Amino acid sequence: MSQTLQAIYAAKRKARRFAVQGIYEWQMSHNPVHEIEARTRADNAMHKTDLGYYHELLSEVISNADVLDALLVPVLDREISALDGVELATLRLGAYELKEHAEIPYRVVLDEAIELAKHFGGADSHKYINGVLDRLAQSLRAAEKQQAK
């Protein structure tokens, strides 16, 4: 893989990390998205972050939280209110990418969500995230999943 491609992937990964933190903050505080984004940009070195993707993830996941939750409910084994805040933020971000970014292979979406859960979540939350998003991919990315078999 070229260094340019590696830099693009790394910038998107950083965007996801900052986005999941912002989504988590919003879930806990309901602060306006623009305040969360401004504070994040002011407090962090984001020069190697895909800022456009960060902005999209943060604003779109938050503004579409109800739609994303409706997608998640059928594949969860518990109520959304029983989820850990980091798990919920990660699942919402993963659901958004599965739904809105078909150009990103579903396995990449799952891998990125697993890494976020390992970094921010509890000890085994990455396993739960993987299972939920894999079930969601069965409906949102059925053709892609079928081809991967």
Rank of each mutant, 00 (worst) to 15 (best):
K12I: 05
E144I: 01
A70H: 13
I114Y: 15
A143F: 02
L68C: 07
D111I: 08
P105A: 01
I23L: 03
H119I: 07
E115A: 15
E79C: 06
A42W: 00
E37R: 12
M1E: 13
T90Q: 09
Q146R: 14
A123F: 12
Y9S: 10
Y106N: 10
V108I: 10
I129G: 10
S2V: 00
A117I: 09
N130L: 13
I36Y: 01
W26L: 08
G131M: 06
K12G: 04
R17E: 15
F18Q: 09
D43E: 15
N44R: 00
N44Q: 01
L76A: 06
L51C: 02
I8L: 12
R135M: 06
L98A: 09
F120T: 11
I129S: 10
R78H: 08
A45F: 05
E87T: 09
I104L: 14
L136W: 08
V109E: 03
V132M: 06
M28Y: 08
G131Q: 11
V33I: 11
V73C: 07
L93R: 11
V109I: 11
H30C: 05
Y24F: 07
L140V: 03
S2T: 04
E112I: 06
A45Q: 13
V61L: 08
Q6V: 08
L83C: 14
A38P: 12
I62P: 12
I80P: 04
S29F: 10
A102D: 14
M46V: 05
L140H: 08
S81H: 10
L83I: 04
R141Y: 02
I23C: 02
I23Y: 00
Y54F: 09
L57S: 03
I8H: 07
K145H: 06
E112K: 14
E112L: 14
A102S: 15
I129N: 09
L58E: 11
Q3P: 00
L51H: 03
Y24C: 08
V132R: 10
P32T: 04
D111L: 14
H101M: 09
N31Q: 13
N64G: 11
R78Q: 15
T49R: 07
E35R: 06
D134A: 05
R78E: 15
T40G: 00
H126K: 11
V67K: 11
Y96G: 04
V73L: 02
N130Y: 12
N44Y: 00
A15H: 00
D77T: 08
A113N: 05
A117Y: 12
L68P: 04
W26A: 11
E37Q: 11
S2N: 11
H101C: 05
I80S: 08
L116R: 14
A95E: 11
A148T: 10
G52A: 00
H101N: 15
V73M: 08
S125M: 05
R107Q: 12
V33W: 01
V86Q: 05
K14G: 07
I129R: 03
A117V: 08
V73T: 09
H119L: 15
A142Q: 12
P32V: 04
G131V: 07
A38H: 03
S125Y: 05
A15L: 03
A137Y: 02
Y53T: 02
V33S: 13
R16V: 00
A65W: 09
Y128M: 12
N44A: 00
I114R: 15
L5P: 07
V75Y: 13
A70S: 13
